[in-house]
Computed example of a mutant assay.
Amino acid sequence: MTTASGLRLAMVSRDESPRVDEARRELLEFLLREYGLTVPSYSTPDDFNPSPDEPLDLVVALGGDGTILRTCRQLGQHQRPMLGVNLGRLGFLADLSPTEFCERFPRFVAREYQVVHHLMYSCRWQNRAGQEETWLGLNEVAVLAGAALCLLRIQLEIDGERVTQYSCDGLIVSTPVGSTAHSLAAGGPILRQDLSAFVITPICPHTLTNRPVVDRADSVYRLTVPDAPPGTMLVVDGQIKHPLEPGDVVEIRQAPVTFQLARLKDHSYYTTLRRKLGWSGQPLYGGQGAE
């Protein structure tokens, strides 16, 4: 039996559904049988609360990109290197299948991986009464019309300077990691995941000159909706939803911690983009050379 000397792991699952539970059991049995590793396992990200001084080389997130987002937020100010194992469609972060995880695990044992640090953000909400709440996130902050089902007028300030007032169905402030999520669907650009920047993307802007804007990560972004209709919603990473009222202020800034993603050294971000987005290089229809 090969022993994975010194490699310290924990496994966090998306949920306790039969499909996820079976995949977790098979991976745990593989790690014990082939490498002599007894790995602590957690049924959901909410159950995962390691102490700040607990040594962990890798946190294996079993489920998909959403599982990584939840686990990342759960770790708070004490981020650990994470490795995503996808149980559904190919993810941008969780891009290994269970089979690929088993095939490539010897390379992780041999420390043939690198830990890449990615921008995270801190989102602070405050109302007129002085109540406030702060969330840590990885993908994006969105202000959405939600149940209001009407046009929003969202004011944007960057570092205290008024930028513009958007007339739109919503506004997204995204990290590079989140640029391939909601922001991309709304027409925003794809940013390399290791860039230090935010992208501001309006959703269905009612002025054609309102285009996505890319700006510095060390700036402070302030959003207000002065006449927010009932149903207006603040959404953090697509998972936390908080109602917005007139006079509420949303501030987004670079977090003091980074998301740590474990990647094999020959990993290619553009290979993931080609696989995920169907960038095959072949014409989709008609034209010379089409098959």
Score class of each variant (00 low, 15 high):
R14C: 08
R19E: 07
R24C: 04
F30E: 00
F30T: 06
T44D: 08
S51T: 13
D57L: 08
D65L: 07
T67P: 13
R73S: 10
G84Y: 00
S97F: 01
P98V: 01
P98H: 05
E103W: 00
R107M: 10
H117M: 08
S122C: 04
Q131D: 14
E132W: 15
T134S: 13
W135E: 00
A147N: 10
I154S: 09
L156T: 14
L156D: 00
E157W: 14
V163K: 03
Q165D: 08
Y166H: 15
I172S: 12
V173D: 05
A181D: 02
L184I: 14
A186T: 12
G188N: 02
G188F: 03
I190H: 05
L195A: 11
A197D: 09
A197K: 05
V199Y: 05
P202R: 13
I203N: 04
C204W: 09
H206W: 09
T209Y: 07
D218A: 07
S219P: 08
T224C: 12
P230K: 08
D237L: 04
Q239P: 14
Q239I: 08
D248L: 12
A255F: 06
V257R: 09
T258R: 09
L261V: 09
L261Y: 02
Y269I: 06
Y270P: 03
G278Y: 13
W279P: 11
L284Y: 15
Y285A: 13
